[in-house]
C-alpha cells in the first residue's frame, strides 16, 4: 500500500508540468470566460463586479425601455447560420479533400512530401491577406467577373460577395488542409493490395471505393470533419471580410461584443454557447462511433 501511495505521488509529480500547462493555457481562460459571462458589463469595456444572468437573457430576449422582455430570434438565427455554414464548409472540404488525400497517398514518398508541403503552404502566409485575395476574386468586377464580361458572357454582376456562398468558400479554403491531412494520414496506412483483392472479387471502381477505401479511412474522415467543423463554427475572418458583417456568424458576433460593442459578458456568454455546441457535436460523434464499434463486435 505504501508503495502504491508513493507511486501515486510520483505520478502526480511527473504529470505536474503537463497539468500546469494545460491548466494555465486552456482551463484558466475558459474559467475566466465563464465567470465574465455572469458579471455585469462595464460600458467602457471589461466587466463590473456583481452576479447576473443578464448576458444569457440577452441571447433570447430584448429589453425594452420599460424593462419588459421581448423575444428576439436574431441571435438564434446567427447560431443556426453558423451551424449551417460550418456544416457546408465541412461537407465541401470533405468532397474536395478526400480525392486530394487519396491522390497524395498513392504517390511515391518524395512526391508525397512535396504535395503535403504544398497543401500546408497557405498556412505560411497570413490568413487576412489570403482572405483579402478572395475579395479580389469574388468582388464585382473582380477576377471572375471581368473575364466573363470581356467575352460577353455576363453583364451586370454575379453579386458573389457578402453572401453565405462567399463565406462558405472562404471557410472551405481556410480549413481544407485540416481535412486533407488526417485523411491522408489514415490512407497512408491503407494497404493498397486490398484494392486489388476487392477488384479480384468482382468489385468495380465504385464498389472498391465504397466497400474498402471509405471504411478504412473513416478515422481520418471523422478527424478531418471535426477539425474543419469546430473552427468553422467560431470563424470570424471569413465571415467578416467575405460576409461583410451583413451575414454574422458566432465568431464575428463574439468579436463584435469584445471590440466595438464593449459588452464583454454577452461576448463571453456567446462563447460559452459556442463551446456547448462543439461539446454536443463531439459527444454525438463519440456516441455514434461507440455504437458502430459495438455493432462490429456483435
Amino acid at each position: 500500500m505504501a508503495v502504491g501511495a508513493e507511486q501515486t505521488r510520483r505520478t502526480w509529480w511527473l504529470l505536474s508540468p503537463a497539468l500546469l500547462t494545460v491548466g494555465f493555457f486552456m482551463v484558466l481562460p475558459m474559467v475566466i470566460l465563464l465567470v465574465f459571462s455572469f458579471m455585469e458589463a462595464d460600458p467602457y469595456g471589461g466587466v463590473d463586479p456583481g452576479f447576473t444572468v443578464e448576458a444569457y437573457v440577452q441571447l433570447l430576449f430584448e429589453r425594452d425601455f420599460d424593462d419588459t422582455l421581448a423575444y428576439t430570434g436574431i441571435y438564434l438565427g446567427i447560431i443556426w447560420r453558423s451551424i449551417a455554414l460550418a456544416l457546408v464548409a465541412t461537407v465541401g472540404s470533405l468532397i474536395l479533400g478526400f480525392p486530394v488525400a487519396y491522390y497524395i497517398a498513392r504517390q511515391n514518398t518524395r512526391t508525397q512530401n512535396l504535395l503535403l508541403f504544398l497543401v500546408t503552404l497557405p498556412f505560411w502566409t497570413n490568413l487576412l491577406i489570403r482572405t483579402y485575395a478572395w475579395i479580389l476574386i469574388l468582388s464585382t468586377d473582380g477576377v471572375i467577373e471581368q473575364p466573363l464580361k470581356a467575352i460577353g458572357f455576363l453583364d451586370g454582376t454575379l453579386d458573389m460577395m457578402y453572401s453565405n456562398g462567399a463565406i462558405a468558400i472562404g471557410l472551405i479554403y481556410t480549413y481544407l488542409p485540416l481535412m486533407v491531412l488526417p485523411i491522408y494520414a489514415s490512407m497512408e496506412k491503407l494497404d493498397f493490395r486490398l484494392i486489388e483483392a476487392a477488384s479480384d472479387l468482382y468489385a468495380g471502381r465504385y464498389r472498391v471505393f465504397r466497400e474498402v477505401i471509405v471504411p478504412l479511412s473513416t478515422p481520418g474522415i471523422v478527424a478531418g470533419c471535426i477539425l474543419v467543423f469546430v473552427p468553422s463554427l467560431g470563424a470570424f475572418v471569413a465571415p467578416d471580410l467575405l460576409g461583410g458583417g451583413r451575414k454574422l456568424m458566432l465568431g464575428s458576433l463574439i468579436h463584435l461584443q469584445f471590440a466595438s460593442s464593449r459588452n464583454w459578458p454577452f461576448g463571453a456568454a456567446i462563447a460559452m454557447c459556442l463551446l456547448a455546441i462543439v461539446m454536443i457535436a463531439l459527444m454525438l460523434q463519440a456516441r455514434s462511433s461507440a455504437r458502430r464499434r459495438a455493432m462490429e463486435v456483435a
Partner: peptide, 29 residues
C-alpha cells in the same frame, strides 16, 4: 478488367479485409 474475369486469387499476403468479419470477407465476392 480484373473484376470481370471469372478468376479468383489467393494472395501471398492473404490481403483479407481488416474491417470485415471472416464471413463478410468470404461473402464479399
Amino acid at each position: 478488367p480484373p473484376f470481370k474475369r471469372p478468376v479468383n486469387t489467393v494472395f501471398q499476403h492473404y490481403s483479407l479485409f481488416p474491417h470485415m468479419t471472416v464471413a463478410e470477407n468470404v461473402g464479399f465476392g
